[in-house]
């Protein structure tokens, strides 16, 4: 892609800070400069953001999106969501959940048809999504189902240049050990490598976290390191990836914070989430990696406590938008998520 990518900017839950973040994003010169943008949302939701921020966004309303309309103007694909206008601020609601799901599903469809190159969505509220009919534990489950993906697509996080991919995510801790396998860990390492390459890293420096305390201490406190994690790391090293580990989780994040590695592959949800939220929540981005289209979102939630107050920090949303652009261009150049390795 030599031209700018076309990014679908998807409304999240209108009860939260999403509407105001969208308007702030669309008012940001660097954002408008970086990509062509199509808003995918209900007009009343953007209107809500406009009145919070006190700024109106010039945009061209369309009922069907086409690629060549996008140069030089912001497009707005109108979604009609039942009961959306009555969604109260800062409250859980089924309509708020439907808004999130419908927006994302519409964007997936547009990307599958080659119309948009990347997706950046505003925060969802999990409880509203359950009420709104989402049967999946998380967005990645929804996306995998939509695209029929059975490879290791998974959620990544990034803050201050520290990336994190997970081998397992939204599963009970009791089930994690059975899900860990050499194959699955290899897939996660490979996904980390290809994702960072798409984002512009020449040779990503990958580090793999241990599963057990003290990395099992030679098998005294668990054998996963010896039996599956180390062999997986070795296999990926043989494929010329720059990967080290497994290292104990407590000292590993120090090295990542100090810039020794670009991406950490963690074995379970909290192993990465605790660190990355504490080290960089004010900047954090979540990415659904390994799908046919890059999908990003700010790592924070709907922030009901400050919704409608024009106080929300734009940085995570701006970082998410920029990452979607970088990956969209990387993907277009590479032809697919996995082709370089």
């Amino acid at each position: 892609m030599t031209e700018k990518p076309l990014i679908g900017l998807v409304q999240g839950d209108p009860a939260g800070i999403g509407p105001e973040l969208m308007v702030k994003l669309l008012s940001d010169d660097a954002v408008r400069e970086r990509a062509n943008i199509a808003i995918i949302g209900d007009p009343s939701v953007i209107g809500r953001g406009e009145s919070v921020v006190g700024h109106t966004i010039d945009r061209h309303h369309v009922s069907a999106l086409e690629r060549d309309q996008a140069a030089g103007q912001i497009l707005h694909l109108d979604l009609a969501i039942e009961d959306i206008e009555s969604v109260p601020l800062a409250q859980v609601s089924a309509a708020g959940g439907r808004s999130s799901l419908t927006g994302l599903e519409t964007a997936f469809g547009l990307s599958a048809n080659g119309i948009i190159d990347g997706i950046c969505f505003m925060p969802f509220n999990k409880e509203s999504m359950h009420l709104g009919g989402n049967p999946f534990m998380d967005e990645i489950g929804f996306a995998r189902d939509y695209f029929g993906i059975d490879t290791a697509a998974s959620e990544f996080n990034m803050a201050h240049g520290m990336w994190n991919g997970r081998v397992t995510s939204h599963v009970p801790m009791r089930e994690v050990p059975d899900m860990l396998s050499e194959e699955r860990i290899c897939q996660s390492i490979e996904l980390a490598d290809s994702t960072l390459r798409l984002a512009g890293y020449d040779r990503p420096r990958i580090v793999v976290a241990a599963y057990n305390p003290h990395a099992g201490e030679g098998g005294l406190m668990g054998r996963e390191e010896i039996d599956i994690i180390r062999p997986a790391v070795k296999r990926m090293q043989e494929r010329q990836m720059q990967v080290s580990g497994p290292f104990p989780a407590d000292t590993l994040w120090l090295k990542v914070r100090d810039g020794e590695y670009d991406v950490v592959v963690t074995m379970y949800h909290d192993q990465g989430q605790i660190a990355i939220k504490l080290l960089g929540f004010d900047q954090g981005v979540s990415l659904l990696a390994g799908l046919p289209v890059p999908v990003t979102t700010p790592a924070h939630g709907t922030a009901f406590d400050i919704a409608g107050q024009n106080k929300a920090n734009l940085d995570p949303a701006r970082n998410a938008f920029m990452m979607a652009c970088d990956l969209a261009q990387g993907l277009s150049k590479a032809g697919g998520w996995y082709t370089q390795t």
Binding site: D250, W253, L254, L279
Partner: peptide
Amino acid sequence: MFHDQGLPVLKYA
């Protein structure tokens, strides 16, 4: 609840 849930935080934060 477990070793690596609590200790890493103290070291890096």
